[in-house]
Nucleic acid binder design. Structure first.
Ligand code: MN
Ligand code: MN
Ligand code: ZN
Ligand code: ZN
Lengths: 148, 148
DNA sequence: AAATTATTGCAAATGAAATTCATTTGAGCT
DNA sequence: AGCTCAAATGAATTTCATTTGCAATAATTT
């Protein structure tokens, strides 16, 4: 999906919800899309503030991240200690993560079979799943060879 | 495993690490074990403080929870928003969680096949897993029938 | 373009978790 | 049992991410 198309959809979403289509909101979706898939809000705040002036304040960034989550373009994918790592998922297929606890490297993977098993488990418990997150913490190949 | 046995192991662990065996630490492992499997630290602080006086202060509770994590009796199992839910896992087999976003109900499940697939994925990426967490957020049976 | 309503930015508040530091306690030794 | 010293404790304070109140501003509606 193109970014322009996404922005259009986001505008529709905002209008339909009775929210306003603002400069900040549209510029932030651009910034987040170009930042790179996995990000933390504070990093984003710093990065955005160091660029053009006046895109959005910290509060607006926090608020817009929530909006984009509601819209479905962003997802909370990793919770490590008291850090939250988000991901821009628009147009990206669902996947899970391996997280290296030494270097922070994030590896993405997808297994249809894991998804299917989850569906079965939910059925068994008459549980209606909304979303899920599988985090595998460990040590990546590079780090397991390094002597540090 | 009996609680007494666990406490013995914990004492061994403390000594071996050069930590001290203190009243607070031994009493806290009791309290946590009897609190119920899933808990948040702040709840625990309130509960412990409202019981007998002098078991441990907030700081000690936070510090001891970390110790017990290091020891392996406790695990961070659910990260929801800015809440962290821990679980007393000593003597309990590994499992994953379904979390109802309406009522907070937690359902535990275990699937050997999911574990096996994860191992394969890790092998494929030459990734050495340390621990993992699968959280499925959704609506439980009870909540899906309630009209609230 | 005036009226209405939501959004913004800033500062201040919050809440979980970590930390500081004076005091107490545990462990080893005599 | 007393002595010594390092580690643990509690209370207060700090940190840091996130949230909120509010006056000013911008987007929609009429
Ligand atoms: Mn990802
Ligand atoms: Mn559990
Ligand atoms: Zn690594
Ligand atoms: Zn429920």
């Amino acid at each position: 999906m193109q970014l322009d198309e996404l922005k259009q959809k986001f505008e529709q979403f905002l209008k339909q919800k009775g929210y306003k289509v603002t400069k900040s909101r549209l510029e932030l979706i651009d910034k987040i899309a170009s930042y790179g898939s996995h990000f933390e809000i504070e990093q984003l705040v710093v990065w955005v503030s160091n660029q053009d002036k006046g895109v959005a304040s910290r509060s607006t960034i926090y608020r817009t991240v929530k909006l984009l989550q509601e819209f479905g373009a962003i997802r909370e994918v990793i919770k490590l200690g008291n850090r939250t790592i988000y991901e821009f998922i628009a147009g990206k297929p669902h996947h899970e993560h391996l997280i290296c606890v030494k270097c922070g490297k994030i590896i993405e993977f997808y297994r249809e079979d894991i998804e299917e098993i989850q569906d079965k488990v939910c059925e068994e418990y008459k549980f209606t799943p909304i979303n899920h997150r599988l985090e595998i913490f460990g040590v990546c190949d590079g780090c397991s060879h390094s002597l540090v």
